[in-house]
Simulated scan of single mutants.
Amino acid sequence: MAKLVRFTDKQRMQTLAEFRYALRQFLHFSEERAAEAGLHPQQHQLLLHIAGAPDGVETTVSYAAERLGLRHHSVVELSKRCEEAGLIARRHDATDKRFVLLQVTPQGRRVLRALSDDHERELSELVPRLIGSLNLIRKSGMHRVQADSDPGDRGDLK
């Protein structure tokens, strides 16, 4: 069993801040690459979630809305823009016309492949930092409430 290392509040905040910074760097990188490819970041994310859906999962508008954290009507509009750009095809489900299925087109796959290559390279550099932060979080027991903490402590840093 891993030994728990007690962190001070300052160390906890530094570790969490570093992890959040690394995540934000990756998101910024992703947004920039999408723009360079002529896509809005949400268009890139939609393509990625459609192409990366697990086998047997219907890539409906509802599925995409859940994965993107958007409302159904927002994904309808986003998918229409992607269809107009030739990135995806939309079609009604054969058995239930209420469902719209989304599929990445060959053009969309080419764009997504190029973006994914860039993202893999960036992640290969970033992953060690993310893993290091996660290991520190795990070893410190940050996910547990410390029994020795002062109940009156509001988390103010000193």
Rank of each mutant, 00 (worst) to 15 (best):
A85I: 06
R129Q: 12
G132V: 08
H28W: 04
V61H: 04
V145W: 10
Q107T: 07
Y63L: 03
A22Y: 09
L4Q: 05
E84I: 03
G69L: 13
D96H: 13
F99G: 00
H72R: 14
L39R: 05
G56E: 03
E77R: 14
Q14N: 11
V145A: 13
T59W: 03
Q25K: 14
T95I: 09
V145T: 13
D117N: 00
Q25W: 07
A64V: 07
M142I: 14
L27S: 12
A65L: 08
Y21F: 13
E66G: 13
V75T: 04
E84T: 11
E84N: 12
V100Y: 01
Q11T: 07
D118I: 00
E18G: 09
A53K: 07
G108P: 01
H143S: 13
H143P: 02
V76S: 06
Q42C: 06
L27H: 11
V127T: 09
V76G: 01
H72P: 01
L23Y: 07
E83L: 03
E31T: 06
L27V: 11
H73E: 13
E31C: 02
R6S: 03
Q25A: 11
G38E: 06
F19N: 10
I137L: 15
R20P: 00
D117I: 02
T105E: 04
R98K: 14
K97W: 08
V61W: 01
Q146L: 12
Q42N: 15
L102I: 03
R110H: 01
V5H: 06
I88R: 02
R12S: 11
F29M: 07
G152I: 01
R24L: 10
V5W: 01
M1S: 10
V127M: 09
S124E: 05
S133F: 09
D96K: 13
P128V: 07
R24W: 06
G38M: 07
S30G: 06
L130Y: 12
G141N: 09
